[in-house]
Design a protein around this nucleic acid. Sequence first.
DNA 1: TATGAATGAGCATTCATTCAT
DNA 2: GATGAATGAATGCTCATTCAT
Lengths: 201, 201, 201, 201
Amino acid sequence: MSDTNETGLRTAILDAARHLITREGHRDVSMRMIARAVGCSVSSIYLYFPNKDSLIHTLIYEGFERWYEETLVISRLPVTPLERVEALSRRYIEFGLEHPEWYEVMYLFRPERVARYPKELYRRTRRSLDLATRLVAECDPERFRSEDDARVVLGLIWSLLNGVVSTILAGRLDSRIDREEYIEAAIAHTVEMVGRRVAAA
Amino acid sequence: MSDTNETGLRTAILDAARHLITREGHRDVSMRMIARAVGCSVSSIYLYFPNKDSLIHTLIYEGFERWYEETLVISRLPVTPLERVEALSRRYIEFGLEHPEWYEVMYLFRPERVARYPKELYRRTRRSLDLATRLVAECDPERFRSEDDARVVLGLIWSLLNGVVSTILAGRLDSRIDREEYIEAAIAHTVEMVGRRVAAA
Amino acid sequence: MSDTNETGLRTAILDAARHLITREGHRDVSMRMIARAVGCSVSSIYLYFPNKDSLIHTLIYEGFERWYEETLVISRLPVTPLERVEALSRRYIEFGLEHPEWYEVMYLFRPERVARYPKELYRRTRRSLDLATRLVAECDPERFRSEDDARVVLGLIWSLLNGVVSTILAGRLDSRIDREEYIEAAIAHTVEMVGRRVAAA
Amino acid sequence: MSDTNETGLRTAILDAARHLITREGHRDVSMRMIARAVGCSVSSIYLYFPNKDSLIHTLIYEGFERWYEETLVISRLPVTPLERVEALSRRYIEFGLEHPEWYEVMYLFRPERVARYPKELYRRTRRSLDLATRLVAECDPERFRSEDDARVVLGLIWSLLNGVVSTILAGRLDSRIDREEYIEAAIAHTVEMVGRRVAAA
DNA sequence: TATGAATGAGCATTCATTCAT
DNA sequence: GATGAATGAATGCTCATTCAT
């Protein structure tokens, strides 16, 4: 309650919700728990969010927004396109591990289950993805003449990176594996995927 | 209720629970719902499982068991080691997409959140992983002289495949990407990871 | 809780709800209050009624049922038709005053506001009304050749009697008026309405 | 908010409350809803009314006031006493049907449930009633030598008219009954009650 | 082996009201 | 005169679980 006043209740609620969700999963986090964590009454939450859904949507929205900004910074780095992709991969893993709350919250986004206000959310998701796709395409304009080709590769990269981050966050990484080595190997692979043609299926 | 008796109530409960969880998420599935789906009373479930947690643990356990059997079959295929790895990758994606119930249920497994009976669960997880690691190691005994090297690569493969499956299951695959192409590219990549040395970081 | 067991919880719930509604109005009666009055837990109520609406519908339904039985008895009295109408009027007022719970609960029935399961309720309402209409018609077959004529008169009678009962129950009867005299005058009037042609409009 | 200022916030609040209550019932109308309808803040309502109860009391009070004025006008009509009673009956039904808000709001008045400020309310109720009683008495000074006799008859008239109005407003009028015919028959009856001695009980 | 009855704790949400500004 | 922020208490309802039979 003390340091809450400084940043505003709305922000405090979002922070508490994000942390609790990361720890417990979003279905297990109740408005009561959030209120208790913030130190305000339950009904005060409803002063800032019309309902639980919208609170969670806000969280997801902010997660994507936040990652988009990271993507934007990287897209402007004065390095080679391939190095930009490498930076993007590295940053994605870092982002996920440094801010598991943001990462997990973005992962909550499930088109099928997130019912009520998803239109704007969709747009945000796409924005980051499209920018990243462009970064991939720039690496090899000849190979990625069609945007679709770049998209498939980006899709794989994204899957790999998500697999890596979620494996680590979930504590499922085999304890006999060295974490740094694992991460670096993943990044190296994403660079490979972009820089070299796959032997094809 | 009629054909339930043949296979046993316990099995019927597990089946119903698995399907419901896939459709609704495990937090949204209640004992009531399971009982209704099975056609028995709620309290009958407690004859076979001391509580909801243990029911879910059983589900996870069975998921890993099932996948272990698949892994076992592949490990005995009379083909080259590399082809076995390819088969493993393909089968993993197929398994996840064909049986989202099993897949999702395995994914429920979070050491931190699954509190009560995790010891045996851990062992099951490892068993599949170790077998798969061996399959990878056999592809290039020289490169994978140390088991750890194989483990890192398998970790990446597993991450990539999980990323692929979960992306598709969650409906998050960019609609502009062709699904089959995406899957085949992923499999091709896993083969690449094993068969060719990465350019290093 | 002691005398509850004898009659069954369901009945106890209905009784408590009926009394509370009479005292407080149906919007002011909560499931919690009913539970407290009965001496059971809130969730136990949901064992017998899927929701509050259906509990109230049951109450209304029973009220109409109960009154229908009264009507039926009167319709079989071995007296003149006019005396039957008189008996009906007298019994209606008595019924309302003796069982304000039943009476008020029937009055809750508002086609517009009672949304969910009103079909059967409608039928019950009509049943009593149609029987009463027949009783009126029998008083003067010549005058009430068309059923519609009897219906208008019955409608007026019903309005008068409802006005009388609700005025008394609401405590709005002018304290300078003698209650018995008032009631008898009302009954006399209903007989008049049926037995003598109105001077017309 | 713009045209609100002209008439005053207090009036705007009362108007909004009256309309909402008619549409939703007084228990379902919240201060929030009223504020939203008016276009002011919730707490502004508390500037004019100490609490919700007193707001509703004011509404009831005004309803009776309004009807009293109608009664007053009729009491001065230059026609025969009996025609005045007829006019009163007709006007009462009209008033109820034209202004269901006023009518319903008056009907909210229940001495038992309206706890806090009922003294003045009582007085208002009586005022209309006494005036109407006098109108009845004037029709037949000989028969209504005692005021009490007139009061009983007026009580019946009032009950009948209330029954008629509330039946129609509640949508409970049998759909096979012609509304105009029903109303005219009711009015005719009130005239009868006053103009002709009932056969007695 | 199977169940129906019962419950306490919890859920998201809404309410009338207060108070500092 | 007017408001925004805040809250405690209440609402209908669902849940996992227990227990006597």
